[in-house]
């Protein structure tokens, strides 16, 4: 694909996303709300928030290495949006949540996240920076010992050092939810955290933490793009396979496609929250 085609497709892709975002928000605002698909990982967050309020213990919210101004800026913004709704939910507690990060450029974002939802207290000291990678994991586990967080929500950019934080949280009986845009961190999150999100679910998480229609609309747009991507990949795969199988015909392809669509719809309905299916 030449550079011109790539540029035109990129512009069209961004434009289509803008149109989808506004369309989804319009329908959400008009009350034609679609139920979000179930993500098991975020369901326990509400329980941890309640525990945090009842026990007057803070939540620990970690962005890790997600940095504003670098490749993972979008991850930092999505993590901060998710945290904002969690902080808002937890503001009945006397202790404000702690936001930690290993990217210095994300400090203002962390401080702002606490300040917006937590208008009293020293929010500057509740966003804490530590040097990156292993030093970050070690410092966070050590520094938070005295704070005794109710749970750790680790949503950002992490590597294998995530293991140290989750392991320590587990030994102290504190809950953990983890997701990372890096594959090593994602593998550790799946294997070790109490709850986990996978890949793009970090971008949809805010929609699950609030009743705000805009955040939910963004989560729906993400699902639409994902479904289109899966359909596109499947069609290309089937066309490639068809070239190698002379006995394959359109009737068979259509029958299998119809079966797959029905199967997909059944799975989708099963994953809708009760009452919406």
């Amino acid at each position: 694909m030449d550079q011109t085609t790539q540029q035109v497709l990129a512009v069209l892709f961004v434009f289509a996303t803008v149109v989808l975002v506004y369309t989804a928000r319009y329908f959400q605002r008009r009350g034609r709300q679609r139920a979000l698909r179930r993500i098991a990982g975020v369901e326990r967050v509400g329980e941890w928030t309640k525990q945090s309020i009842e026990a007057n213990r803070p939540l620990h919210l970690a962005l890790g290495g997600a940095a504003v101004g670098e490749d993972n800026t979008a991850v930092a913004l999505a993590g901060a949006e998710f945290f904002h709704h969690l902080v808002e939910r937890a503001n009945a507690s006397d202790v404000s949540p702690i936001v930690t990060m290993s990217a210095a450029s994300s400090i203002p974002l962390g401080q702002d996240t606490v300040r917006r939802a937590w208008r009293s207290g020293d929010y500057l000291a509740r966003a804490q920076w530590y040097p990156p990678d292993i030093a970050y994991a070690a410092a966070v586990t050590g520094a938070l010992q005295g704070e005794d967080p109710a749970a750790h929500i680790l949503a950002g950019s992490f590597g294998p050092e995530l293991a140290l934080m989750i392991d320590t949280a587990g030994r102290r009986g504190q809950g953990s939810l983890a997701v990372s845009d890096r594959l090593e961190g994602q593998a550790v999150a799946y294997a070790m955290a109490d709850e986990y999100l996978i890949g793009e679910e970090i971008f949809a998480a805010a929609g699950y933490a609030t009743d705000d229609g805009r955040a939910q609309a963004d989560a729906i747009v993400l699902d639409v793009w994902r479904a289109l991507l899966i359909m596109g990949v499947t069609i290309v795969l089937m066309l490639e396979v068809a070239k190698r199988m002379p006995w394959l015909n359109w009737a068979l392809v259509l029958s299998v496609s119809a079966l797959l669509v029905v199967f997909g719809l059944l799975i989708y309905r099963r994953h809708l929250p009760e009452g919406d299916g």
Binding site: V14, V18, L77, I198, W225
Partner: peptide
């Protein structure tokens, strides 16, 4: 698949920031 998902999510989050709609 995970990286594609992250890239899609980044486009949606980026679009929100691009339009001045992000909370930050």
């Amino acid at each position: 698949a995970i990286l594609l998902g992250v890239a899609l999510g980044a486009v949606v989050a980026g679009t929100r920031a691009l339009l001045g709609q992000d909370r930050s």
